[in-house]
């Protein structure tokens, strides 16, 4: 009897150890993803270093689902740069090109006007009521790099949350049940 009891105990302890190991490895995956994201924030100086293009206003340059890498340096903003900006009262940031810049003589403050390459008119209609120019604090970063199609993953996940939950569930199950 003692032998059987020992065996059962050892099995139980193995399972607990395995459970802990799997829990830790899951935690490692989540934290390393977080570390990479925060490190990117540090290096690029932008609060969101990667954005997904959501509209076709910059076509044919950027299509819906493309990914842009942002960089926010202290360099002054100049015409022709593609910037990502937030407008007061709008949640979703916009990616458009700068077409006019007026930089103050003494303070160095800038007034910027943007336009989407594929749009007919400039962005004053998108800005807040009565706003004619963007200032520095509206701008989150300028686009420096480009990767096509990858952003579709996030677009699909935000538009069809079920797919997201199924995917997370399946991945979690895989991590927990894996024996290696």
């Amino acid at each position: 009897m003692g032998y059987i009891g020992e065996t059962i105990d050892s099995i139980k302890s193995i399972q607990i150890r395995q459970l802990i190991t799997q829990g830790v490895s899951l935690g490692m995956i989540v934290t390393s993803a977080l570390i990479i994201w925060k490190a990117l924030m540090c290096f690029t100086g932008s609060e969101s270093p990667v954005v997904v293009v959501l509209s076709g206003s910059m076509e044919p340059g950027f299509k819906r689902g493309d990914i842009l890498f942002l960089h926010m340096s202290n360099d002054p903003i100049r015409a022709g740069e593609i910037v990502v900006f937030n407008v007061d009262g709008r949640e979703i940031p916009i990616v458009h090109r700068v077409i006019k810049v007026h930089e103050r003589q003494e303070t160095g403050e800038v007034d910027v006007l943007t336009k989407g390459d594929n749009n007919f008119g400039d962005d004053r209609l998108l800005y807040a009521q009565g706003q004619l120019w963007l200032q520095r604090h509206h701008i989150m970063g300028r686009a420096v790099g480009f990767l096509p199609y990858v952003g579709w993953v996030t677009i699909i996940m935000t538009e069809k949350p079920i797919i997201k939950y199924v995917l997370i569930g399946a991945l979690g199950l895989l991590v927990i049940t894996s024996k290696d």
Partner: peptide, 30 residues
């Protein structure tokens, strides 16, 4: 190269502004 975006800007200085850049024309070269 997917495309080249080209634009012509007028650049000048005024007593108020150290730099004014005004885009006059632009085009996409596919």
């Amino acid at each position: 190269t997917k495309q080249v975006f080209v634009f012509l800007a007028a650049e000048y200085e005024t007593p108020q502004n150290s730099l004014n850049q005004v885009s006059l024309w632009d085009g996409i070269i596919p």
